[in-house]
Write a protein that binds this DNA or RNA. Structure first.
Lengths: 256, 256
DNA sequence: AGCTTTACACCTAGGTGTCAAAAT
DNA sequence: ATTTTGACACCTAGGTGTAAAGCT
């Protein structure tokens, strides 16, 4: 089940062969120049087999049902200059962690392929529109409650509701920067802290594992393309309640 | 400037002899039974002189001007069953910390004396109404951004806006529990982390210092007593904007 | 009489998609 | 022709003091 793949703002390649809950280990980068694109090199260049202890960890996508509904239609995520939350939210639970250990949980989002897309309204489908735009600075979203104790991770869910997506390449807020009209795959990483001095930039003394959930693939957009996606967002996101049919009443209906 | 005082839900004694920015070290408790009152024993019973390194740390109350205005009138803080924020907020900045070290910053609130008070409306003044009610479980509010790096502390302010006060002795939310009609002194503590295993309950391997700001003394109340305090809250707390004179307009004034 | 509780209107703060305008 | 931006109405979520009611 251990699969080597490219990483760190490099395309993931095809994901169709993966199970519902796939996992990516640390794979060697194929391009010699790729390291210069990575301002925050999460992934070392030498492949590493996870330790027995880390191999026991499993990660479960709590919001799978909702993600599945979106995935069927082709999930889209709005990106804005000031940053936009993801909906659905990525919410995961872990098992197999050591209650006494400390862990850092983080997320990043990597391109699925080297393509740029456009939406054909008359066909209601996505088409390849050419090669991908130049890669953007890769950013990690370290979950703000990190570090977690293993005990916490076994009890609570980890929710990435606060992560924001932006198309502003000069963003100063630490939001994740994406290219519009490109396909992306969110990833969840867990790192076991071995000593308190180790940082994310210095992973030699750490162990980590990476989890991907193919049903969370999405296309970044600045405005929704597929109207069915818009409708599903409105019907399932509490903040969009004002656009639901049932609240779209005339004055007469309101009084009745 | 190092002063030994009682601690941990024990009365602080008179504070009038302290400077604007006082500091409390760890003092021996006078009452043999006091340790049983402390469910979270922050303060050991043996007095300790801070290390040279810790002695260099200073703590500044950023919101002093506003606190002074309230202090002149006699600050009151509402406590409710579900928990109420403090206003003004305690916001502090530190200097003299080691940029490379890690620190935990926390807050607690201790009784100022052994008295219960009542407010004489006709005289607009507070009167002693008897002996203090039985002490409540002492709670620590660890700042949620802890642990901080020294670098962070030198850059940012530390704001305790989210701390909540309650009169519910059975509170399950971790709010700070206070007796109504009693006088309290908030305190800010900073602890240097020496190793990652040390907890707040096991401070032997840690060093810490405690700062008090006498202008932040307040009386806990379930409803405001002094109308001047109510007015100052309304005029200075953004959430109370709806009660300001300028927004108390008649329909005619609103249209004009 | 003194103190506490509760529902409430009125805010802050910020997350939604919409739609027209602007940019490319 | 397509994509992006920004002001906007409409929400969620929750922090205010108020005033009447409840408690002791």
């Amino acid at each position: 089940q251990f699969v080597e793949k490219s990483s760190c703002a490099q395309p993931l390649g095809e994901l169709t062969s993966l199970d519902t809950q796939g996992e990516f280990g640390r794979g060697g980068s194929s391009s010699p120049s790729s390291s210069s694109l990575c301002t925050e090199p999460l992934i070392p260049t030498t492949p590493i087999i996870p330790s027995e202890e880390m191999a026991k960890i499993t990660c479960n996508l709590e919001t799978k049902e909702l993600w599945d509904k979106f995935h069927e239609l082709g999930t889209e995520m709005i990106i804005t200059k000031s940053g936009r939350r993801m909906f659905p939210t990525i919410r995961v639970s872990f098992s197999g962690v050591d209650p006494e250990a400390k862990y850092i949980v983080l997320m990043d989002i990597v391109p699925v392929d080297n393509k740029r897309y456009r939406y054909a309204y008359h066909r209601s489908s996505w088409l390849v529109a050419g090669k991908a735009d130049p890669p953007l600075p890769a950013r990690l979203y370290v979950h703000p409650d990190s570090p977690f104790t293993g005990e916490q991770l076994l009890k609570q869910m980890v929710s990435f509701e606060k992560v924001k997506l932006t198309n502003n390449e000069l963003d100063q807020h630490g939001h994740i920067i994406l290219n519009s009209m490109h396909k992306y795959q969110p990833r969840v990483h867990i790192i076991k802290k071995k000593d308190h001095t180790a940082s994310l930039l210095n992973l030699k003394s750490e162990e980590f594992r990476t989890f991907i959930f193919p049903e969370t693939v999405f296309t970044a957009v600045t405005a929704y393309q597929n109207q069915l996606i818009t409708k599903l967002k409105i019907d399932s996101n509490p903040f969009a309640k004002g656009f639901r049919d049932s609240s779209r009443l005339t004055d007469i209906e309101r009084k009745g």
